[in-house]
């Protein structure tokens, strides 16, 4: 069932996240609106995963505030996330999608056609009855995308969805992401792969040590980074 309210824009106001004395994220101000995919990049430990969890509402910020379409309510209505290592329910592929549809409030009579449609979209129609946990890494990632798309999200948060995949599987996942973006879903995605950033990104957020170091259109950022740290990250140096 479509919730009447929208989750966009997603606004972070002076958001910090601390674990004990260490700041994981520090003073982030961020507005996410409709448009081409936004890619989060930065070295390991920069806070990409934590930022995605905050955007999903899975964790609450230590200070600052996050609003979705102006609301403070953290319950996810029109957003979905795919974790770096998605957990497959111990059921068949189609039952995994059915579960996501049920939780999103889709009436039982509509589910069968939606399942077929979603599995088709991610190229798993042939494997519908296979046990989800016996699928390959790439297939599991695509099934996780199907589960996320089942929620008819406005915002789709992705945490390095191709980190452990071979190039063929990566292309499959990227095609799904591109189709989702073209259909009007706002994609916010963490990535390690600068080639992928070039292929997918509308704009880029460069995170460093829990701070937003730079935000720019992807082409500008990749070709003319405005800070020394971004330039050395793009060169492949270790930025500490």
């Amino acid at each position: 069932m479509r919730a009447p309210s929208s989750d966009l824009p997603l606004v972070l106001e002076n958001v910090s996240l601390r674990a004990g004395a260490t700041a994981i994220l520090d003073g982030l101000n961020l507005t996410i609106t409709q448009g081409a995919p936004t890619l989060l990049i930065g070295p390991n430990g920069a806070g990409k995963t934590s930022l995605l969890r905050l955007c999903m509402g899975l964790t609450a910020p230590s200070s600052g505030r996050i609003t979705w379409g102006g609301r403070l309510d953290r319950a996810p209505t029109r957003r979905a996330i795919v974790f770096q290592r998605p957990v497959m329910l111990r059921r068949s592929a189609s039952a995994n999608v059915a579960y996501a549809l049920a939780q999103a409030g889709v009436p039982r009579k509509d589910r069968a056609s939606r399942i077929a449609d979603l599995l088709q979209r991610v190229g798993l129609a042939e494997l519908a009855h296979r046990a989800a946990r016996r699928l390959s890494g790439g297939e599991q990632q695509r099934l996780a995308l199907a589960r996320a798309l089942a929620r008819e999200p406005e915002i789709l948060l992705l945490d390095e969805p191709t980190a452990n995949l071979d190039p063929a599987a990566t292309r499959g996942v990227e095609e799904i992401i591109q189709m989702a973006a073209l259909s009007g879903i706002k994609v916010v995605m963490a990535s390690h792969d600068l080639g992928q950033v070039r292929r997918l990104a509308g704009d880029v957020i460069f995170l460093l040590r829990g701070r937003q170091h730079e935000r720019a259109p992807a082409r500008d950022f990749l070709d003319h980074p405005s800070s020394a740290e971004a330039a050395s990250f793009l060169r492949g140096d270790l930025v500490i």
């Binding site: 969890r53 999903m56 899975l58 319950a75 996810p76 209505t77 979905a80 996330i81 974790f83 998605p86 957990v87 329910l89 111990r90 059921r91 579960y99 996501a100 939780q103 999103a104 589960r147 929620r151």
Partner: peptide, 27 residues
Amino acid sequence: IEYRDELGAMNVGPFSRVTTLLWDARF
């Protein structure tokens, strides 16, 4: 521990959590 994030992201209510976990732990 394994399912918490995934079920949280799907906004699964307390009652459904119990039935989901019992079913997925069936073996």
